[in-house]
């Protein structure tokens, strides 16, 4: 069974999906951050692949992308780092990453790497799924989706409060793993009106979709995480954690403090 499906089978609520940027704050921090997240209660890791023009992201994640690129991060480099992802006692001192890992990134660097090679390599390394915000459903259906499926990767679409019911159903049908519910009116890292988020989630709940729902954008602490989890299977924390990592000396300690405070 796929790792993500297995997770949602075992755990129905309060799923914590943590975002981090590969190669941030330092080039070699990728696995340390992932390990610290796993040790401190993350259920899923969404690993961002840095891009020069991340359209859907606010200033904090943009900055982490810029820093990671300056550090020398590339998809090729990332895949080298991830060579020990699922192998116990390899790159990691005391074990491997057992929780699901999704790669999040934009189309252009993936196209240059080679779309099929990207899917094949990611799958071989033990990556579970992809989130590509600028891969729209038409191109997914006509060109890229079959390749993603061929290599057994999950693909997660985003839905917003402005996404029509018909379209939500379609995106749910196309998605595997889970569905990513975001606020329509926001790049990452903006404060959200939780009442509006709640309404959005309750609407989604009513549709009885096939996928579990994780809420992204605007989740920054225990309070907003708990509020989001009332009407969804879990939530994604990104910007607040990247902010905490900025300038952190001790990745383990910073991550521990962040997740325990959250």
């Amino acid at each position: 069974m796929k790792r993500i499906d297995e997770l949602f089978k075992k755990k129905k609520d309060k799923i914590l999906n943590m975002y981090c940027t590969a190669g941030f704050p330092h080039l070699e921090d990728t696995l340390n951050v992932m390990k610290a997240l796993q040790e401190n209660g993350a259920d899923i890791i969404e690993l961002g692949m840095p891009y020069s023009d991340p359209l859907a992201d606010g200033p904090v994640i943009q900055h982490s992308n810029t820093v990671a690129l300056q550090n020398g991060m590339t998809i090729k480099k990332l895949f080298e780092q991830l060579s020990g992802l699922r192998k116990p006692n390899s790159a990691l001192s005391d074990g491997s990453i057992a929780i699901p890992v999704l790669l999040m990134g934009y189309m252009n660097p993936i196209l240059q790497y080679g779309f099929e090679k990207f899917c094949s390599d990611a799958s071989t390394l033990g990556v579970d799924g992809l989130i590509i915000p600028d891969l729209p459903e038409y191109e997914y259906e006509t060109e890229y989706g079959s390749t993603i499926k061929k290599y057994g990767l999950d693909f997660v679409f985003l839905v917003t409060p402005e996404t029509s019911e018909e379209r939500v159903r379609k995106l749910d049908q196309l998605s595997t793993g889970f569905l990513y519910a975001v606020s329509s009116s926001s790049t990452t890292g903006k404060d959200q009106n939780m009442t509006d988020v709640k309404k959005h989630l309750q609407n989604l709940k009513r549709l009885k979709l096939k996928n579990p729902i994780l809420v992204g954008f605007g989740i920054k602490d225990k309070q907003s995480f708990d509020a989001a989890c009332e009407d969804a299977n879990g939530a994604i924390i990104a910007t607040a954690f990247i902010k905490a990592l900025e300038g952190a000396d001790d990745i383990g300690k910073t991550t521990k403090n962040f997740l325990n405070a959250s």
Binding site: L135, L158, E162
Partner: peptide, 19 residues
């Protein structure tokens, strides 16, 4: 209909811009 001239064009946008 999808905005392609040959292989170029399309609308590679995040869902937040879809509407």
């Amino acid at each position: 209909d999808q905005g392609y001239y040959g292989k170029f064009g399309g609308a590679y946008i995040p869902e937040m811009l879809h509407r």
